[in-house]
Design a protein around this nucleic acid. Structure first.
Length: 542
RNA sequence: GCGCCCGUAGCUCAAUCGGAUAGAGCAUCAGCCUUCUAAGCUGAGGGUUAGUGGUUCGAGUCCACUCGGGCGUACCA
C-alpha cells in the first residue's frame, strides 16, 4: 500500500517540486474514519509554500492520478491530512500471497546478503542463569529471529570471561567446599559464591578424586571443573527455551592468540594510551569523554575494557555488517568506553548497536520477590521455565519494550486462563485448526477465487491487519523491538475472535463459506509465523 | 553530585523518526453457549499522560527545570 502511494506522490512531485524536499511518510491512522493510510505532506509543506495546509492538500490531490479500482476515496481532513481509502478488493489479495508463501510469509529480503552478529546472555559461568538473564536470553534470541526475517544471515554469540578475578574466586570457592568435604575446618568468605551448586561441584570432584586434590591450586582443576559444570547447566537452561548459540567466544582465547598485547601496542603506537601511577590509561578525554580510563591496572592485569575492545575488533574482522550487543542496565556505563576505543582505532561503530534492557522484578501474589546473588537467594531461569513453561516465559519477556522496567507476575504467568495473554493467541490458532478439522468433513474446500465476497466489517478489518504483517516485522526488526510482534498478534487474534463470533462458515452459502475458509487459513499462517518469530509454539488444539 | 533508563486508567502495559477524539488486557459491573473450541464475544464505568514552563500548525513523544523510582558512576565485569 505504502509503495503504491509513494509512486503516486513521486509522480505528483513533477508538478509540485517542493514534495521532493520532504521525506514522505504514510501512517496508518488510529481511527478507521481517517482512512487506511494518511499523509501529512501538506502540513509539512505549509511553511515552505506559505499556504494553508488544506489548500496544499487539495493541490496535491489534484496532481495525482487515481485509479478508482485501487483507491476508492481521498479526502482532506483535520488540519490538512490527506486520507486514502483503499478499495476493499485490494485487501483480499493478501490471502493469495499468504497461502503461496506459507511459512515464509512476512519475510523480506531488504537486508539479504548481509551478515549480523547478535551477542547476548554472555553471563560468566559463575552460577546458574537467573530470571534476570532470562529477559536478555529471550529478547536476544528473538531479535536474532527478527533479523533473519528481514534477510540477515545471523550468528548468535555468547561471550564469556574466564580470565578474571570472578573466575578465580569461583575456583577458590569450590576448593574450600572440597576441603570442607575432606573434613577440614574452613573459613568461607562472605563474598565467595554461596550457592549450593558450589558444593555439588566439590562433591563431584571428591567422588572422582577422593582427597588427592587437597594441595591443588584454585586456578587449576577447581576452576576448570566449575566452568565446565556450570556451562553444562547454562546450556541446558537455554536449550529449554530453544536458544542455541552458534559461537561461544571466551576471553582467554584473546590472550592466547596475542590479541591483547597486539591491541596494547597499537594504542601505544597511535599515542592513544599513556602510563601513570604504574597503570596504562586510555586517552578518552581526547575522544570527547569526561575522563581517561585505565586499561591495564598497576598489577599488570588488564581491566575489562581492553579485552572487550579486542573482542569487538574480532567481530569487525569477521566481517559483520551489523553487530548487536544486548546488555542489562547494569552495564550501561561500560559500553561507551569500548565504543570510543573502537572509534579511535578507525572502526565504523555505527555498525555496532548496543541494546540495554532494564531489570526484571518478580512479583508473586502481589508481592515483590527480593533477590540477592551474594546470598544465593534468587529464582533461577530453570525454575521459572519448569514452573510456567517455555511459551509463557518467551512471551512474557518479549511482550514489553526493553526500555521499561518489567514486572514478571508469577501468579499471572502460572494461570492457565484468560488472564494470560499467551493463551489468547494460542487459543486463536487452536480454534482455527479446530474449524478446519470440522469443516473439512463437510466437503468444504478453501476457494481463493471469490475473495471479494469477504466484505463484512469483521472480514475487511481482518484482511487489513493481515496486510500489515510484513511491514510490522520489518519495523520491529529494524528497531529491535520484539514487543511489537506481540502487540500485532494480540490485535490480529482479537479481530479473528470477532470474526469467529459473527461470521460463521458452516451454515453460510457455499461460495461465502469457502472464501471464509480461505481467510481463516491465511490468519492461521500469520499467527503461526508471528509466534515462531517469538519462539512460541502454535498448538493445533488446546 | 554526575550519567543512562523510566513515570500514561485501580493493576500490568501500548501508542509507527511530533499527528487527528491517548488505546488494550486484567480487575469491577451488566449481558451472550440446542450449530465451526465460552481460554471467546458484546456493552458500561474508569485519564489534567508525575508537575511547571518552553519550542510549533500540532506534544504522552522534543527542550529546560522540579518531584519520584531503577541502574550505574573502580586500577570489578
Amino acid at each position: 500500500m505504502k509503495e503504491y502511494l509513494l509512486k503516486l506522490f513521486n509522480e505528483a512531485a513533477n508538478k509540485i517540486p517542493e514534495l521532493k524536499e520532504i521525506t514522505l511518510q504514510f501512517d496508518v491512522p488510529k481511527s478507521e474514519d481517517h482512512g487506511d493510510l494518511s499523509s501529512n505532506a501538506a502540513m509539512m509543506l505549509s511553511k515552505k509554500l506559505k499556504k494553508n495546509p488544506r489548500e496544499i492538500a487539495k493541490l496535491i490531490i489534484d496532481s495525482i492520478n487515481i485509479d478508482n479500482s485501487v483507491i476508492s476515496k481521498i479526502e482532506v481532513a483535520g488540519p490538512g491530512f490527506i486520507n486514502f481509502f483503499f478499495h476493499p478488493n485490494f485487501f483480499s489479495d493478501v490471502i493469495n500471497h499468504i497461502v503461496t508463501e506459507q511459512d515464509n510469509f512476512g519475510r523480506s529480503d531488504k537486508f539479504k546478503g548481509r551478515k549480523a552478529n547478535v551477542e547476548f546472555v554472555s553471563a560468566n559461568p559463575t552460577g546458574p542463569l537467573t530470571v534476570g538473564h532470562g529477559r536478555n536470553a529471550v529478547v536476544g534470541d528473538t531479535v536474532a529471529n527478527l533479523l533473519e526475517w528481514i534477510g540477515y544471515e545471523v550468528d548468535r554469540e555468547y561471550y564469556f570471561n574466564n580470565a578474571g578475578r570472578q573466575m578465580r574466586v569461583l575456583g577458590d570457592s569450590v576448593r574450600l567446599r572440597y576441603l570442607e568435604l575432606l573434613g577440614e575446618k574452613i573459613d568461607f568468605p562472605e563474598d565467595y559464591y554461596q550457592g549450593e551448586y558450589i558444593k555439588d561441584i566439590a562433591r563431584l570432584l571428591f567422588d572422582e578424586h577422593g582427597d588427592k586434590l587437597k594441595d591443588e591450586d584454585a586456578e587449576g582443576i577447581f576452576k576448570l571443573t566449575a566452568e565446565r559444570e556450570i556451562f553444562k547447566d547454562i546450556k541446558k537452561s537455554l536449550n529449554k527455551l530453544n536458544i542455541n548459540h552458534k559461537i561461544f567466544f571466551n576471553e582467554n582465547s584473546l590472550y592466547e592468540e596475542g590479541k591483547i598485547e597486539q591491541l596494547l601496542r597499537t594504542f601505544e603506537e597511535k599515542n592513544l594510551s599513556y602510563e601513570k601511577d604504574g597503570a596504562v590509561w586510555l586517552r578518552l578525554t581526547e575522544l570527547g569523554k569526561e575522563q581517561d580510563k585505565v586499561i591495564v591496572k598497576s598489577t599488570g592485569e588488564p581491566t575489562y575494557r581492553l579485552p572487550d575492545i579486542a573482542y569487538h575488533i574480532t567481530k569487525f574482522q569477521r566481517g559483520y555488517d551489523l553487530m548487536v550487543d544486548l546488555f542489562g542496565s547494569d552495564h550501561n556505563a561500560t559500553y561507551p568506553d569500548v565504543l570510543a576505543g573502537l572509534q579511535a582505532l578507525g572502526y565504523d561503530v555505527s555498525k555496532v548497536k548496543v541494546l540495554i534492557h532494564q531489570f526484571v522484578t518478580i512479583t508473586k501474589d502481589g508481592e515483590i520477590v527480593k533477590m540477592s546473588t551474594r546470598k544465593a537467594n534468587y529464582i533461577t531461569l530453570d525454575e521459572l521455565v519448569d514452573e510456567v513453561g517455555k511459551d509463557v516465559v518467551r512471551y512474557f519477556f518479549n511482550m514489553r519494550n526493553i526500555t521499561s522496567h518489567m514486572n514478571f507476575d508469577l501468579t499471572l504467568a502460572k494461570k492457565q486462563s484468560d488472564e494470560n495473554p499467551v493463551f489468547y493467541l494460542q487459543y486463536a490458532h487452536a480454534r482455527i485448526c479446530s474449524i478446519i478439522r470440522t469443516v473439512s468433513k463437510e466437503n468444504l474446500v478453501a476457494n481463493y477465487n471469490n475473495l471479494h465476497l469477504l466484505n463484512s466489517t469483521e472480514e475487511i478489518q481482518l484482511l487489513k491487519k493481515l496486510n500489515l504483517f510484513k511491514e510490522e516485522v520489518l519495523y520491529a526488526a529494524e528497531n529491535f523491538e520484539t514487543h511489537r510482534i506481540c502487540t500485532y498478534l494480540e490485535e490480529l487474534a482479537t479481530l479473528f475472535h470477532k470474526f469467529y463470533t459473527f461470521r460463521r462458515i458452516l451454515g453460510s452459502e457455499k461460495d461465502i463459506a469457502e472464501a471464509r475458509l480461505a481467510l481463516v487459513n491465511a490468519v492461521k499462517i500469520v499467527l503461526k509465523n508471528g509466534l515462531s518469530i517469538l519462539g512460541v509454539s502454535a498448538p493445533e488444539q488446546m
